[in-house]
Design a protein around this nucleic acid. Structure first.
Lengths: 151, 151
DNA sequence: TTAATCTTGAGTATTTTACTTGGTTATTTA
DNA sequence: TAAATAACCAAGTAAAATACTCAAGATTAA
């Protein structure tokens, strides 16, 4: 698992996409302006996302991008994996200079942890994030209203 | 939160340290050979780890590094934070071109997720990883013995 | 047809990573 | 005391990844 700013950009862009009305596609130009990510970089990221079926592009005027499947079916891990090459860290397969298994042990420990992180992110869907965020947003609004009333 | 190969190196090295007998310090040369990480790169990483109190260096012949505190008190997040600069992703503080709160919402969603990941990694200690790994190791040995007996 | 938009590819500046080199201390051991 | 060992330190560098630019199609709505 690898969690870089590239992955963040992708997750942020996908979140942006999820927050829009699903009736009409969202242009990359919109997301670019909205999230402060350069258009051509977004194009690259969306090429990855599209090849994994996470988004669907619609060409021509009025075109843009849709989510490739329901937000509830897209995990954060899916998104990050789409744009970030999964690098295998442990090249040591017990072949050589694996001193008393120590090296392999550390590597397998890392692998375990890596898998845990992956599972964790695989359990969080776009939909959940959006739901939680909207709930929070409502709560904030509610709080604001109450504060105004109190004043 | 940011999870790069740099962080992996650090975690792997710390795991290596944890797996050694705590009576005598472990040299970076050992870890370097053991884990296939260049000595001087390790020195850089350990400078960070030391400044955060995660390891303690002992100079002179017979010297090396100890864990700075019990493995049970060191989380994976601690290690990663020590070597990977924590980059703030959202520079948008509601100041400008925050179109209808959309941008802020995505950013706060990302912040939430980021915090979740951080909490997750903050909950996993070195000790837990080692314990789990050793249990697994024992299980493997046990399985091997059983297989031999069966043959 | 034309403008909007995705799509593709090649090229590039900047940053990060991972390493190299060449030292200086502090400490132990001979 | 001298030599060896290992942490410490700093500067520089090659390679890779990041983030972006530029340019040219392809597709489709208006």
């Amino acid at each position: 698992m690898r969690l870089s700013t590239k992955g963040r950009y992708a997750v942020t862009a996908m979140l942006d996409l999820s927050l829009h009305n699903a009736d009409n596609p969202v242009t990359l130009a919109d997301i670019s302006e909205n999230q402060g990510i350069s258009l051509s970089y977004l194009e690259q990221l969306f090429a990855c996302l599209r090849s994994k079926g996470l988004v669907k592009g619609v060409r021509g005027p009025g075109g843009g991008y849709f989510l490739g499947k329901p937000a509830a079916d897209i995990s954060i891990a899916n998104i990050i994996c789409a744009v970030d090459e999964w690098v295998e860290f442990t090249r040591c397969r017990g072949e050589q200079n694996c001193h008393a298994g120590q090296r392999c042990l550390t590597h397998s420990l890392w692998d375990d942890l890596s898998k845990q992180i992956f599972d964790f992110l695989g359990d969080i869907t776009l939909q959940e994030l959006v739901d939680k965020g909207e709930a929070k947003n409502c709560a904030d609004k509610h709080r604001l209203i109450k504060e105004k009333q109190a004043a």
